[in-house]
Design a protein around this nucleic acid. Sequence first.
DNA 1: GTGGTCTAGACCACT
DNA 2: GTGGTCTAGACCACC
Lengths: 130, 130, 130, 130
Amino acid sequence: MFEIDPRSRKSIYEQVMDNLKDAIVMGQLPEGTKLPSVRELSKSISVNPNTVQKAYRELEQQGYIYSKTGLGSFVCPRSEIRAEGPELARAEEEMAEAFKTFLRLGMGFEESERKALEIFEIIKKESDEK
Amino acid sequence: MFEIDPRSRKSIYEQVMDNLKDAIVMGQLPEGTKLPSVRELSKSISVNPNTVQKAYRELEQQGYIYSKTGLGSFVCPRSEIRAEGPELARAEEEMAEAFKTFLRLGMGFEESERKALEIFEIIKKESDEK
Amino acid sequence: MFEIDPRSRKSIYEQVMDNLKDAIVMGQLPEGTKLPSVRELSKSISVNPNTVQKAYRELEQQGYIYSKTGLGSFVCPRSEIRAEGPELARAEEEMAEAFKTFLRLGMGFEESERKALEIFEIIKKESDEK
Amino acid sequence: MFEIDPRSRKSIYEQVMDNLKDAIVMGQLPEGTKLPSVRELSKSISVNPNTVQKAYRELEQQGYIYSKTGLGSFVCPRSEIRAEGPELARAEEEMAEAFKTFLRLGMGFEESERKALEIFEIIKKESDEK
DNA sequence: GTGGTCTAGACCACT
DNA sequence: GTGGTCTAGACCACC
């Protein structure tokens, strides 16, 4: 399905979560789709099952998937994704910090904003290709 | 000088670094200014001296300050800040991740970009006030 | 007869049991009524026969139904339902936990009790409609 | 601090969570209080550190505590407890199920409600004693 | 010392 | 087979 980068700053379970989130919000895994089982996925990406389990558990808490013992894990309707309150606040702070990081490198307002928009465009293009 | 937020997700030494970086790039600590000693600063913000020490060491490595043994630490000319290479790459990735986080919450391209620009404006205003 | 919610936190065999219990205590399945066979029911609600089997077995143990080999399963007289002993104790503990859950969300005594009574009223109305 | 009941239907990490939640909402652990470290608590209740860790992590996600590497875990202001949305909905469903369980034991509306109120009173008294 | 992550391997209930 | 929990023991960054 995807690959884990052991050199990434992101922890493994976060990489798993983000990869699945991406596939869900981009519609590659539509509502109701059955995800690979914990054991399957852990094998295919060469990661301990507990680590995948942790990712699935957290995805469930955040409303992306639901799990049924004995049956597997399934994609929730997109409307159930918790995109409010603390989750949104944290995302906004992450964005604010990213901008401040630019400023701390000595970049000015305009340059920082221009660079950010460039990055956004690249991501949009990458997303559309998939 | 500034305050540490014990609740922040950022580690304490990062908060110290970022606060000093902010003061430097915004000109509140112009080139050549002497920074408070590790002991002084650690007292005034109620933080372990080892933690402040680590922040100073990192700031020196990144070209924000230099230290003269026995005399203290001083602000480098802004031109020496390395806004290239690994630091810039990491900053760009941070920005990319922040944008992806918006998308992962189910926000579309336009909405994400609009929200990002809103956040940028807020930061600009806050910076100008200081 | 009824529907299974694959998203429910309850396991499937519990859902089967509870639906049948509801029909029994509400008189929709009076004493002596013949239940659908395991195979029939499993087909009509699209559930594995083993799962329905397990539900029937448990219902028999708890005194809701009895089975005559070769003939099928039948509803017991309501007087045989054991509303005492372990089942009652567990039900009481379930209620206690539900109340404590309210308190753990930071709700006060009065608010928790008021909310509980509101919920009870809704259930009563729903039951009467059937 | 408290004890784990290995025979409880609740899992160990849930028992840990609920015990701490109780202490927090009842004011025994006021805002800002430092919790025992993961290792300390795991020793004192004879449970694997990973299990306590899991409880702490979930308490953090639910807004009861926050954790700082190297410092420990601390009680959040009560206002940050997430008592809305999915959390409240789940609590309400738990209460609804508890009531339905009474009905399924053959108890009538009045009897069920009376019993529930009795249980609530007992919990209130127990809480006040602590 | 602290919390956080990961692995390995076991057991359980449900389907 | 499935997800869920628990234990044991290791490693890391931070304070």
